[in-house]
Computed example of a mutant assay.
Amino acid sequence: MEKNIEISLLLDFYGGLLKPDAAQMIDLYYNEDLSLSEIAAQTGITRQGVRDRIKRCEQNLFELEQKLGMLKRFRELEQGLDRILEAAGKIDSETDNQRIKDLAQSIKAEALGLKE
């Protein structure tokens, strides 16, 4: 997975555990695509200071993921839901029994609802 996307996802999960100004810098850099110089101008610190803070925050995010594993678990759940959707689709398409079709469609609806 591309680093930018992974950092953005980690920020979604753990951003509340970072200092607000640090989370804002990560957000500006990865989600808003601002340069280090643009962030420095907005925050009133040096470009090198912004870079150092972002690197420290990245490290913190990766350490939190290593300890808590929320993003890993989220990905596993999404993959499981995909497998459930696929199986329910096969059941729905391979049976003539209306009751089984209805149950398969209900399973698909629930899984799709959980994916949202």
Rank of each mutant, 00 (worst) to 15 (best):
E94M: 04
L34N: 03
C57R: 05
G89K: 07
E63F: 08
I54L: 01
D102F: 04
R75C: 04
I91L: 10
A104G: 03
L36M: 06
R53H: 04
R83H: 08
R53M: 10
K67G: 08
L103C: 01
R51G: 08
L28W: 12
K72S: 14
I91Y: 02
Q66A: 13
F62C: 11
D96P: 02
I26Y: 02
I107M: 04
F62L: 13
D82E: 11
M70W: 12
R99I: 05
L81Y: 12
G80F: 09
R56V: 09
Q42N: 09
I45M: 04
G44H: 03
E86T: 15
Q59E: 07
Q66F: 10
L61A: 08
A40I: 01
R53E: 01
L68F: 12
Q79P: 01
E110C: 11
V50T: 09
D102M: 12
L103A: 02
N60P: 07
M70H: 12
Q48Y: 00
Q79K: 14
E76W: 08
G113M: 00
L36G: 02
F74S: 15
K55R: 14
L61W: 10
L36K: 04
L28Q: 08
L81G: 01
Q59R: 10
S106A: 10
R83T: 11
K55V: 07
R51S: 14
S93W: 12
F62D: 14
K115T: 07
S35F: 12
I107F: 13
G49M: 00
T43W: 00
R47F: 06
D92S: 12
Q48N: 07
E76M: 14
D96H: 00
Q79E: 11
D33W: 03
